[in-house]
């Protein structure tokens, strides 16, 4: 009986898992196999990090009776971690954050909020052990394929672009947001580079962190606007903020700050809107 729209085949969350699985495999190759020096822990670090985070999220899901909520959050956070992250810092902090988020029921996007706090306070390096100990130069093709500096499993731009096309086939994915945000970033970057005669335009455009945030974090349904017009505005401001934070602060940490700021703005806006409604209710009551 068709009296409800059921999305055919896999739903959006499952497709995000599939995409993340591909990214984790690439991360395992780039930050595990490629830097293998006889240390098995280093070899499997990307896998251990992501799987342990996922399992932690899964246990929390079962504990708090949620459906794939915290496991997805934990996985999305873990893939962004710097390759040389210490487990002692990451896992307990992630656990505390997810539990806090559950009990305080924060309205802000917990993924970007955690990443913002983590990156701002620790200011980690995104080099893996090989990159940190030797001089490396990555070309355009390398960067595009994923052999560049970045989070443990989020360096492959090509996988992320392919994932975007895959997500776009899903009914509940807000596919316009990444495109508008990226084009805003691209146009503002081009204008800025033309005006300042900067020659690193392509390298700046192929920033894997920007791609990850635009494709996986910005369109997250719960933390993005509902109306189409507001979605376009949200994407536009995000693109501009990413440009500003990337160019004037840090190309790797900047995008996270930008997305955190736009999410903060959205949360404050929602709060104000709710308050305004509350006040209007009191006004009606007084009348």
């Amino acid at each position: 009986m068709i009296n409800h729209y059921e999305e055919p085949k896999l739903n959006l969350i499952n497709s995000i898992y599939i995409s993340l699985f591909c990214l984790i495999l690439f991360g395992f190759y780039k930050n595990g196999i490629k830097i293998y020096n006889g240390n098995y822990f280093l070899l499997f670090k990307p896998l251990i990090l992501t799987i342990s985070s996922f399992l932690m999220g899964y246990v929390l899901d079962k504990l708090f009776k949620q459906k794939k909520k915290y496991s997805l959050y934990a996985l999305l956070i873990s893939v962004c971690m710097p390759p040389q992250i210490s487990f002692v810092i990451f896992l307990p902090s992630l656990l505390i954050w997810l539990i806090l988020n559950h009990y305080l029921s924060l309205k802000i996007n917990p993924i970007i909020c955690y990443l913002f706090l983590f990156l701002i306070f620790l200011k980690p390096s995104f080099f893996n052990s090989l990159e940190a100990n030797s001089v490396h130069f990555y070309g355009i093709i390398d960067t595009f394929l994923g052999f560049n500096v970045g989070g443990i499993c989020i360096t492959s731009i090509i996988i992320m672009i392919l994932s975007y096309f895959y997500f776009s086939t899903k009914f509940y994915y807000k596919k316009e947001i990444p495109v508008i945000a990226y084009f805003t970033y691209l146009i503002s970057s081009c204008l800025f580079d033309i005006l300042t005669s900067n020659s690193n335009l392509l390298i700046n455009l192929l920033n894997s962190h920007i791609f990850f945030l635009l494709i996986y974090i910005l369109p997250l349904n719960q933390y993005s606007p509902i109306k189409k017009k507001n979605q376009y505005l949200y994407a536009l401001i995000s693109g501009l903020l990413i440009f500003v934070c990337t160019r004037f602060y840090n190309p790797l940490i900047g995008p996270f700050i930008a997305v955190f700021l736009i999410n903060l703005f959205i949360t404050i806006n929602k709060f104000c809107r709710k308050k305004r409604n509350d006040f209007s209710f009191f006004k009606k009551l007084l009348k």
């Binding site: 509940y172 807000k174 509902i226 109306k227 189409k228």
Partner: peptide, 21 residues
């Protein structure tokens, strides 16, 4: 229209915006 499959439980809104669309 006879409906006997009311299995689906209401979940919290995920703000996908499809209802508005």
């Amino acid at each position: 229209l006879v409906i006997n499959n009311n299995k689906n439980q209401t979940k919290p809104c995920i703000s996908c915006g499809k209802c508005v669309e």
